[in-house]
Amino acid sequence: MEEFLKHSLFGLSGLLGVVCAVLVVTRKNPIYSALFLIVLLGTIAIDFFLLQAEFLGFMQLLVYAGAIMVLFLFVIMLINPRGDSLPDEGGATDRWVAFGVALLIFSLLFTAIAKSPRLKEFDSFPGMAAVPETVMGTPARTADHGSLTAFGYEMFTTHLFVFELTSILVLSAIVGAVHLSLRPRRRKREETEAALDSSHGREEHAHV
């Protein structure tokens, strides 16, 4: 019964995801694309839960659907493009070229997946290995949050370096975004400085 539920949930979410993906890339108005993308992200979160990656599923919902997509929606609302301010989506040729490339990539991936003999060995997700009783002296299976302790332990030991790198990346992204959005204010300040210069004369400015 539980297996059947799993299979049908996976099938439904997969189907919904596929449909949403197609809608994301085909809608003319970005607000629709964004909404369908949110649905799509939700289906992927379901898949993560099914794959017993509960932590990641929550992250997917919180970060992606909760933060990134809200950002997207904010921007769309700020810009509020509609009608003639929406870019004209070009001729059929461009679309066909894009479609051709996408189709080629898909067919390549499809063939690779279909033909791979090794994939069959793990195809049906055999039961997971036992979660260790304790990690660093702490009981690892205290509650029903899967293998989160082991996951965290893994992340802050084996993959610590990657983790730090990512934090630096995010930091620089924050600085970059702040810098980009601060630009107009700085220009204003320069203008006032220029005005001061012309009124007070050059020497006084040099003295300052």
Binding site: V97, A98, V101, L104, I105, L108
Partner: peptide, 8 residues
């Protein structure tokens, strides 16, 4: 497009 073709 170049990037896509390269990936392909």
């Amino acid at each position: 497009l170049t990037f896509g073709c390269g990936a392909l």
